[in-house]
Simulated scan of single mutants.
Amino acid sequence: MSRNTSDPSLDFDLALATLDARRSVPPKQLGEPGPDPDTLMRLLRSAVRVPDHGKRVPFRFISFSGDARHAFGERLAQRSRQRDPEASDAVIEKDRTRFSHAPLVVAVIGRLGPDEKIPESERFSTASCVCFALLQAAQALGYGAIWLTGWLAYDAQVAQWLGLAEHERVVGFVHIGTPKLDAPERERPDPAELLSAWSPA
């Protein structure tokens, strides 16, 4: 049932508070505790409620927690050195610890094989919506989160480690944990400057 937005009793700010408060928390500022397995499943149940033309479900998830995060980081460091033998120790260390800060990282994988009816761009958009919905769900439960990609989202060796099929790709790595600090607000665009109304010529 639709809400009557002309109802003066409807508090817009309260109704949209979670959306309005969303902000990214850097991985280094995400600590324990993270979502336990049951909470993760609850987050994902909300995250999958996205527009999905043709009901293709063009996404799946891979989670990283515990020691698996550090083991994956060791592989990333190795791959980083292969990609750039001249990379500094600081760069290698950054890759080694990419997944070591937040207690949980969820890779959202786009499943984008041939489809006679639904364009790949629409299916990728659906998978992208999942990343955003997961951010919103995490924050609604009091966690901090950030959606990242980086070189590893596009690297063939990393895709092999993740077990991606030929037509799959990483849409994002969503890092989730408890914020150590309040993430600062940043300037947001003014929607009034972005909106135009079409009219017939």
Rank of each mutant, 00 (worst) to 15 (best):
P189D: 07
E193Y: 05
R81C: 01
A145D: 02
D115Q: 02
E122H: 12
A145T: 02
L164C: 03
S128F: 13
D84L: 06
F124C: 03
E122G: 01
P191E: 04
G150W: 11
Q157W: 11
E93T: 13
L141C: 12
A140E: 08
P179T: 07
G142N: 05
I109E: 10
L112Y: 11
F124G: 04
D89E: 15
L104I: 09
R96P: 03
G142V: 06
G172R: 10
H167C: 08
L148C: 12
Q136K: 12
V174D: 01
Q157L: 04
I109G: 07
L152G: 01
A140P: 04
T178N: 08
Q160D: 10
R98C: 04
E193L: 12
Q139I: 00
G142W: 06
A87L: 08
E93M: 04
F132W: 12
T149K: 06
R111L: 11
V105G: 05
E168M: 07
V130N: 02
A133C: 10
V105H: 14
G163V: 09
A138P: 01
E187L: 15
L141W: 13
G150N: 05
A156N: 09
A137C: 03
R186K: 12
R81L: 13
G142L: 03
P184F: 07
G150Y: 12
G150F: 12
V130S: 03
L152P: 00
G163M: 10
G110V: 04
L112C: 04
